[in-house]
Design a binder for these strands. Structure first.
Lengths: 158, 158
DNA sequence: ACCTAAAGCCTTAGTAGTGAGACGTTCACC
DNA sequence: GGTGAACGTCTCACTACTAAGGCTTTAGGT
């Protein structure tokens, strides 16, 4: 009946714009503390999850393998993070917050949360919950989808 | 009563993840045609709106002024876009598609739309419409919001 | 007419990140 | 217990930008 493509395109556009709009707010806030958005994401992950393997951090914040080395290097030089050897796997390293890093992120995070609360305050709680539900469904489906349809090849495993 | 902050944070996370998931699909598609995501955005804007001033393109795709010069330079070298002087304002330049650029984007766009349609197909049409409505509201409010509260200063103009 | 402020684009130097490959390590299987 | 594949991290060369400042042109007040 109705062609679904225009709706999908529209959804893509408003989704990108909304995400960018929120991003702009948090970016401004974070950079006022001398951190890049990505650096903040690392500190926050370590703050909420404790020490993590570099590879775990990498997957969490979505950077390349070279990128995570570079970023952790920078944070380490600033004394916010340290590397620690993993005892059970000598290829792997943990990243963990130093006391300075811990103090920094603990001081910044509440304000960060408040920036997000304010930026989303245009929507009531009920609408936000509905939005979360729909976005979660959309996100999981999109992530699960194979990158390319590759014709028919996906039906059988090699 | 209920604290709105956790909901806002959760919304921020799922919004970012959903946006990134869709983005990953379109990025893979676009790069398979030898274009970066940003270059594609420029071509698409020119395709749908006709010739635009560089400044207009810049606002549309959200890059710095240096960035738009760099990007249009690259597209011009590849013969996909040309600059044209603006007759009524000699500071300004138009960017417009060459026939080659026109042909390229016309060939790519339908597949791009199909990638988006497929990536969003986890949600039914009605859900997508609801999602668009909520995201539009969220996006406009967030964009309208002044970057920082700056205390009380916003009430009076200088 | 002029003078200043601002707009529009470009230049330059620098940064955050990517991608491919190297190296050491571990795992699974024979 | 040895071998090949897979893994986790790092290195290096490169790209796509950004930020700040410069030049030309325009607009607006006086």
């Amino acid at each position: 009946m109705t062609d679904p493509t225009p709706t999908a395109l529209k959804l893509y556009v408003v989704l990108s714009r909304a995400s960018e709009a929120l991003h702009a707010h948090t970016k401004a806030d974070i950079e006022s503390h001398g951190l890049s958005h990505t650096e903040f994401a690392i500190l926050e992950a370590l703050f909420h999850k404790g020490p993590m393997l570099l590879g775990e951090v990498q997957k969490k914040i979505l950077v390349s393998s070279g990128g995570i080395t570079f970023l952790i290097d920078k944070l380490e030089k600033r004394g916010l993070v340290t590397r620690r050897l993993c005892e059970t796997d000598r290829r792997a390293r943990y990243a963990e917050l130093t006391p300075e890093g811990q103090a920094l992120i603990a001081g910044i995070f509440p304000e960060h949360a408040e920036v997000i609360r304010r930026a989303t305050a245009g929507l009531g709680l009920a609408d936000q919950r509905k939005l979360i539900e729909l976005l979660k469904a959309l996100g999981t489906e999109a992530e699960a989808l194979e990158p390319r349809p590759t014709g028919l090849a996906a039906a059988s495993k090699p």
